[in-house]
Design a protein around this nucleic acid. Structure first.
Lengths: 107, 107
DNA sequence: GTATTGTTGCGCAACAATGCAACAATATAT
DNA sequence: ATATATTGTTGCATTGTTGCGCAACAATAC
């Protein structure tokens, strides 16, 4: 039995997952877990050109995971969909399952 | 205040998210939600060369999201970490939030 | 005007997805 | 045992996508 599934919905899901598939963007989200931060607060976390960080932030904003609020010259970011934090528990669960499987192969 | 965060863990999470960031792989997972399937069952879902599907499946297997069981000439796949299904609800939540935001901008 | 904060265009290098063709593994028929 | 069919994998080349730095720009504040 094969089930039907809307292609556009699959693409939409993939876009969201893709936005989260980067250590830099995951680090940003981890930081925003603790409250609002401006981009300049995040900059010291990354040994990267500021343009690169700006693009990572833009990706999260455009996708709707992160919201923004301008205050003078700074732009403050916040997490709009905290449920993404729950995803990480599952992600680490996957990592653990795989680690166990690898360990079992060695016996 | 800036919090510490292990780089390797971030990379591990990103690898899991990356494996899920593909409409093809998400479609495979959706199908496995309903039980075991062999690769040949999945083939008709994709207008792709079988080598391509094989690689997508391999990516999910190597990551530990999907397990395999050989039965004669067929290889049956199953979902090892069903929690990934919960991720999709959140992903669609993100999509809805963004849709609302876009709608609000039009007013 | 200058300083600070963030964005955008451009080019490059690394990576990912795909098809094709050849291959490996199992099952079955002769 | 050899051949043939079915199912899936792997090497290779091509094409497309992503991440990055640099430099120039925009927006706000003073």
């Amino acid at each position: 039995m094969i089930y039907a599934m809307d292609t556009e919905e699959l693409k939409a899901r993939a876009r969201v997952m893709r936005a989260l598939a980067s250590p830099v963007r995951l680090r940003i989200i981890e930081e925003l877990r603790h409250g609002e931060r401006c981009v300049c607060d995040l900059q010291p976390l990354f040994p990267r050109n500021k343009s690169t960080l700006s693009r990572h932030v833009a990706e999260l904003r455009h996708l709707g995971v992160v919201g923004e609020r301008r205050e003078g010259v700074r732009i403050y970011l916040r997490l709009l969909t905290p449920c993404v934090l729950n995803m990480f528990d599952c992600a680490m669960g996957v990592v653990r399952v795989e680690a166990k499987r690898q360990a079992a192969l060695l016996e």
